[in-house]
Amino acid sequence: MNEMVIRLKGVTRSFNGPKGKIIALNDVSLSLSSGELLAVNGPSGCGKTTLLVTAAGMLKPDQGDVVFVEKDHPYNLPPDRRSRLRAGVIGFVFQQFHLIPYLTVRENIIIPSLSAPGKELDQRAQELIQQFGLHERADHVPSQLSTGERQRTALARALFNRPRIIMADEPTGNLDDENAHIVLKHLGHYVSMGGSVLLVTHSAGAADYATRILKMKDGHLLSS
């Protein structure tokens, strides 16, 4: 039986906007198990990114609870412990890549180890560089990379700490079809190895790789 890695129970999150209160998440509940790639589709502004960061323990919900691996409640932990928990459990991939511009590919991949450097970590970075076909670009900075290479670097960084789950926010949004396919293939491979992916996207192509698809509208999570 696959292990449940993340669970959201009745999560509600709202913001104060210029035109009043905006409910980004409205009583959302979901769970994600290992070996599962859950794709959440929906139009812009429906609350997909809020769902992602709330599920990742970065945005405390107004109501409801988030549980990691059936035992850890990130929002009950002090900030530093929550950061450590997040670093151990979750990897992130974003549409905008968010690579550090003055670091090389190798350094960007290894950056999660900043708080605990070690030699074996260099070995891990090298494995990821090989796995994502970045060995020729390992010493290049992001401005010298193609968009596909940047996203592969971001994906390698997300996998560096061997997380239980990858939170991916429109990872193919800035990529051409070929590179989008490569990224999704890597995510699929990760899931086949027992990992979990929460993929937030409005791309229809991503559905081909998903084990489950949910739709989101006005802060509500709907079944596919």
Partner: peptide, 16 residues
Amino acid sequence: REEIGILRTVGISARH
């Protein structure tokens, strides 16, 4: 700002 955000996201603590 973006760099800080990503560092915090990948688990770097506020203290770091």
